[in-house]
């Protein structure tokens, strides 16, 4: 299986998030973009995004563990780059950083 770079994954994420379940976003989506604060997502959107990514990459990911970690203090937002790093690690067999 080919190695996925974080840049490729960010590009995939931006394409998915650009028009996500009828919620269009016209700004630049980059690694620092905030999933909740800037893209206006709510909790169920994170679940739907996880499902969309599993469909896109045709495999499952331990999203529950990732989401639990980023929401541990109950207030933190999620940067798109953090999600990309998580996906990179999973897609490339444990490499990369979250």
């Amino acid at each position: 299986m080919s190695v996925q770079t974080q840049e490729q994954i960010l590009s995939d994420l931006a394409a998915i998030l650009r028009d996500f379940h009828g919620r269009e976003y016209s700004g630049v989506i980059g690694p620092k973009t905030l999933f909740f604060g800037e893209l206006g997502m709510v909790s169920i959107d994170a679940v739907l995004l996880a499902e969309a990514l599993e469909h896109h990459y045709q495999r499952s990911f331990p999203f529950s563990r990732f989401l639990a970690e980023i929401s541990r203090d109950g207030t933190r937002d999620m940067q798109v780059g953090e999600l990309a790093a998580f996906l990179e690690r999973e897609l490339n067999g444990g490499e990369g950083e979250v």
Binding site: I44, A46, V47, S64, L67, A68
Partner: peptide, 14 residues
């Protein structure tokens, strides 16, 4: 609420 509560708390995977 919604099912996200079970993912954000890692209940689902656990």
């Amino acid at each position: 609420s919604n099912m996200a509560i079970w993912l954000f708390t890692n209940v689902l995977d656990t």
